[in-house]
Design a protein around this nucleic acid. Structure first.
Lengths: 336, 336
DNA sequence: CTGAAAGCGCTTACAG
DNA sequence: CTGAAAGCGCTTACAG
């Protein structure tokens, strides 16, 4: 007994049903202006009636264009990336492109995913950050596909970049703590040399401390993933090192909220007894008592800009500027 | 002047370079056992050397199989979905399938996205929840593609389902509040009849209250999106209605955390002055003082189960059981 | 405005 | 173990 594969309804079937040639059907969808209104209406009606769904795989192969852009993020749990993806998706959809989402949180997986995206002939790729394995970069270069790296505003980049300087933003908020008169400030971050986005922030903090002639080595680097617990652990680790510790500069608002929670548990008033700075301006920043002073980034705009650059490059082969700066700002609340 | 489209390196190119026929090349990748080890090694070496990337679009068209499963989520900001996607992705990748992620947060967008997924001939679809527009359901049925609806454990479903009863879980935790002796309990949720997952939870809460002979209409439904602010707004709205209010049962841990923040601001001790129940056991539940009692769901397992059912259906045409129950549990901390 | 023919880059039986 | 031929469902110049 042989399993017969169910055959999809095809353009030829629709053409037969409508009494026209397949290529007239094709034109009805792709170049409506080229076919007589009556013919078009009839074809479209019959298509709807019989439930014809154009095979986009065949379409891509024949046309050599997938009209599909891929976005690669390291994690789905970060609301910043969610905003970037939203901004990117909205831009692409409005222009008839689709967004294919892929997740890769370590270099090996990234290489696998990139190969697959290239295999599916994505029209362009949006990546997160600027750290990629040599294999990934080589595949992309070889394929000659347009790429935008996001949360980055510097060259060298593989192709294009949209974002801001994570280093500058962290330095700015650390400087704000210093300007408040704090002298003993710690950093709560993540021990991951792979994650360049975290490394940049830590360096920005340290630069500010050094420039002010303050101790810059009160650094807690979470060994595992970074989260609410990191804020608590940082305080537990740093206070014994420096009992005069007056504040904590955190790699994300989540970590900062965890530090605020720890202050509540200890009954420490914020900012009188202890100050906390965040990064990201997540929703929690405005709600957690007493309100978190933080860096507001514009993830949505980064996504939109990435989409714009990518489509420009895809459609014209070039782009106005390879690097687009998306400003950040510091939002002052009551935690420092 | 004519723009010449850059041609990809093709299997024929690789075959020529290796001195074999294209179909031997194809076999090297797809059926390695069918080709002599020496030949295979040579082909693979040359492929790597010249940077050949198989065209998966052509492959899909020729073979009639995309080996690509699509997942549709309403939002990227929910860490529960992130876990489901992770569980699903891991399962699929281990079996040579890939995960295509799509986001749709309203019916209209869902229909568009589903049409596109069908057009790209996804091998199966994982959806979130059980509420879908008639158009979406019709397209899916017409295509005859396997579908798993997640966060659901009931029939009727379009095809298959994996999850638990959101209603039961909410009723259970409300019953726990009642068992503690609380009599005046409010609900903090979302005003969205479209979001069946929220509606089910609210009904579960109300059922518990009614069964206990208590007032079940102390309900706050956030008009906009639901978040930390919702917890605060619910308290502000419900307290005037019922000054004896003793606790709040919340649609998510985020909302519950917002309520805890409001208690801190008011200087109300939890749970003595006020009790709070969450839903989801997000990371914040264990960290926010004094610890949130909540429903722990198993998003990762839901994703894995969905993948398992889907591949079974894709590969064998049938499935052991159309509905798979994934248990939840109540995690007791100190907020009630 | 409409259509016959060739081709996109693979895979699938089927022979050798 | 290897390969010539047909075909997957579209689109693309090119004629009519």
């Amino acid at each position: 007994m042989k399993l017969e594969r169910k055959r999809d309804m095809t353009m030829a079937d629709l053409a037969a049903a409508a009494g026209v040639s397949p290529m007239t059907v094709s034109n009805c969808f792709k170049h409506p202006g080229k076919v007589h209104p009556d013919t078009r209406q009839k074809v479209l009606e019959i298509a709807a009636a019989i439930g014809y769904v154009p095979n986009l795989i065949a379409s891509s192969l024949a046309s050599g264009s997938s009209r599909m852009v891929a976005a690669l993020v390291p994690s789905l749990r970060n609301s910043n990336f969610a905003k970037t993806l939203q901004g990117l998706g909205d831009y692409l959809h409005a222009r008839g492109y689709e967004l294919l989402l892929a997740v890769a949180d370590h270099p090996e997986q990234e290489e696998r995913v990139v190969r697959s995206l290239l295999g599916r002939r994505a029209a362009g790729i949006v990546m997160t950050g600027g750290e990629h394995s040599a294999g990934t970069v080589a595949s992309i270069r070889q394929a000659g596909i347009p790429v935008v790296e996001t949360w980055l505003d510097r060259e060298p980049c593989i192709d294009m970049a949209a974002g801001f300087s994570l280093f500058d933003a962290a330095r700015d908020i650390a400087n704000m703590m210093i300007a408040k008169g704090l002298q003993h400030i710690g950093w709560a971050g993540h021990d991951t040399p792979q994650n360049d986005r975290y490394v940049q922030r830590q360096r920005g903090f340290q630069q500010a401390m050094e420039d002010a002639g303050l101790r810059s080595d009160l650094v807690f680097a979470a060994p595992e993933s970074v989260g609410f617990a990191t804020g608590r652990l940082a305080m537990e680790a740093l206070l014994p090192q420096e009992p005069r510790l007056q504040g904590l500069c955190c790699v994300t608002d989540i970590v900062a909220s965890g530090a605020l929670f720890e202050c509540m548990r200890r009954g420490w008033s914020v900012p009188d007894r202890f100050s906390v700075a965040g990064y990201g301006d997540y929703e929690i920043a405005a709600e957690v008592p007493p309100g978190l002073t933080t860096v507001r980034t514009n993830g949505g705009e980064i996504g939109r800009a990435a989409g714009e650059m990518l489509l420009q490059k895809i459609e014209t082969g070039q782009v106005e500027s390879r690097v687009r700066k998306i400003p950040y700002e510091i939002i002052v609340r009551r935690s420092l």
